[in-house]
Write a protein that binds this DNA or RNA. Structure first.
Lengths: 162, 162
DNA sequence: TTATATATGGATATGTTATATCCGTATTAT
DNA sequence: ATAATACGGATATAACATATCCATATATAA
């Protein structure tokens, strides 16, 4: 199993949007340029983020995307679920009901214990992701991003935002 | 993202193998019949379980599979990783290094903070799965399986094991 | 010794999802 | 009006999951 690559893109992109000056927006094309990502496909993911209300989209010249709420109020889980959906990764196909030993559906009162076990682990995963905010991600970046990259990013911002 | 359906099959199949009398083995064909699963594809998964040393395979007539160690010593994580591998679900493609603000590789000292966050969540998931043994799964089954299904299963066992 | 039942590994086919692009339309700033 | 942008639908391609088949090795039993 592999997680959607768009998750990585989305978290990085939201991190960039977090540094936008008040009242500004960044179009998909510019964001794609910043990370050298395929523009149209990134646009799809940005639409998902928009539908999940993590970003606000603004049409027309000068438009683009900006965060719809402050970075401390966006969790990594929010971002992951916006891109990847909320469907559990483990899907119980109820094989316990199949074959010669299966019994009619109404005999089963609870979800299968195996499914419950898998879902409990997924909850632990989600809880861990919900514990980290976009602000936390920014903080880590501020501490660990190479100085040269910070300077280059500031340059880029200066040129892109008028 | 969806988890491999073989995980569900594998946990159920190992649960059945746990009830095998000492010295007996159950061939793939019989296991597939018990759950009405595609025989050849299940065989592939059983091979994975065999390579992971969760089951012992015995060739020839009267052969098949049996657990290679007692149910309390097999965790659900063991089973999941046997089927799905140990590669992390989140794969960092280092997009931080790309685009106009990227800097040379040697400037990055640690893995990206975003990847570390995702991996920490995966660890929470694995820890939760490692906490549950096959014995625990059997226990849940013993408590929750409908009585009629238990009887049918015993019938089936009686016919299949000579 | 022969026939049979089993696992194994490789090759291949098919189906589903992820990745990527393109286009027409709606919206909005200038 | 024009240009820049987001949006949704359609489509193409690539990767991966699902499924089958076959040839081979191995072990049992007659």
């Amino acid at each position: 199993m592999k997680l959607n690559e768009g998750i990585e893109w989305a978290i990085h992109c939201l991190s960039v949007l977090a540094y936008l000056p008040e009242g500004k927006a960044l179009p998909a094309k510019k964001l794609a340029g910043f990370f050298d990502l395929p523009e149209h496909y990134l646009a799809k993911h940005l639409q998902s983020l928009s539908q999940a209300k993590l970003v606000k989209s603004i049409k027309g010249p000068g438009g683009g995307y900006r965060l719809s709420r402050p970075a401390p109020d966006i969790t990594v889980l929010d971002i992951v679920q916006a891109i990847d959906g909320k469907t559990p990764h483990f899907q119980c196909t109820e094989i316990r009901r199949r074959g010669p030993s299966g019994v009619p559906d109404e005999c089963y009162q609870k979800p299968c214990g195996i499914a419950r076990t898998m879902w409990r682990a997924e909850k632990a995963w989600r809880d861990e992701l919900a514990r980290v905010s976009l602000q936390d991600i920014l903080q880590i970046g501020a501490e660990e991003t190479p100085q040269l990259q910070i300077e280059k990013s500031l340059d880029w911002f200066g040129q892109v935002i008028q």
